[in-house]
Design a binder for these strands. Structure first.
Lengths: 160, 160
DNA sequence: TCGGGCATGGCAACATGTTGTCATGTTGCG
DNA sequence: CGCAACATGACAACATGTTGCCATGCCCGA
């Protein structure tokens, strides 16, 4: 997000074009991510859910899993997922089952109610995806994805 | 973010490739945005700041502005920016100045201390941008940006 | 000039996520 | 087996952002 920050008035003197294009792209990524989040919440809201809950629920759609594993797959902390999972259980969209392998690490599982909610949201998502990609060149989308992937790789190597 | 959700097990039957490529791209956007945020916070931390504060501070680097205007430019709510601005003032990186045009809407302005912090962060950002874009084709970055921009346009038209 | 509409700021509740700490199960190795 | 690492869950504090509400300052038109 530093984009707006360092970009606008800091055209990199000696860096040349790639650097400017980079800042603009990072900027765009941030904006799109915001919109995507809003869209996701918009899809989940009619079902009384949110993007965060949807994501957690979806992770156990096909197989119950302990909270820690879900957190790992989603790239969040255990605690963040634990809180959301507890809320899902409270709303009876999911439930905890005993884990034969670990007494402490209960398995989060979807309930029929949860599955119904999930299907409603996934249907809405698919419809939106179809509308959104209408007339778009798949190759262009793939190229963009590869570009972003390369940036992610490079940036991750800069992280602690 | 619904990507992981609706994508993996929901290969859109009649939608064809664009739809799958779309889901994968949206997924990638989310992951990159997370990394960018982490990188931004990493750059700000040594200065005792954070990405949120940096962004607000940067918005008034060249001209003091009322909180509402900053919020608008950043695409956040007044309240969110107000809280951060108050923290910046508390830390003496910024200060409120009387607004000749509006007695209530004080102008947020950078202090010399704030300007120094800003410059340190911007320098780090620029260095990182140079490293990250090394050997990348600017045209490819621009193409990706345009693709994301198009998606943003389409998705925004689906918002309330 | 008065009054309504709008912008602004302050407050509170909430959602989401992180970091840190602690106690307690689990596991695996000597 | 027993103990030291490790995983897990529970709690608390904090950061960031949203929504809703209310009071007050500002502007413009009747």
């Amino acid at each position: 997000m530093p984009e707006k920050v360092a970009t606008r008035q800091h055209a990199v003197k000696g860096g040349g074009r790639a650097c400017d294009a980079y800042s603009a792209l990072i900027d765009q990524v941030g904006r799109l991510a915001d919109v995507v989040e809003a869209i996701g919440n918009g899809i989940a809201r009619p079902t009384g859910q949110s993007l965060a809950r949807w994501q957690v629920l979806a992770e156990v759609e096909h197989e119950a899993a302990p909270v820690g594993a879900i957190a790992c797959r989603l790239g969040h902390t255990r605690q963040a997922v634990q809180r959301v999972a507890d809320l899902l259980v409270e709303d009876e969209l999911a439930c905890y089952r005993p884990n034969p392998a670990h007494r402490r690490a209960k398995l989060l599982d979807v309930t029929p109610t949860g599955r119904a909610a999930l299907h409603r949201m996934q249907a809405a998502y698919t419809q939106l995806a179809l509308r959104t990609t209408e007339g778009l060149d798949p190759e262009r989308l793939n190229l963009a994805r590869q570009t972003l992937s390369e940036l992610q790789r490079r940036l991750e190597s800069e992280l602690p």
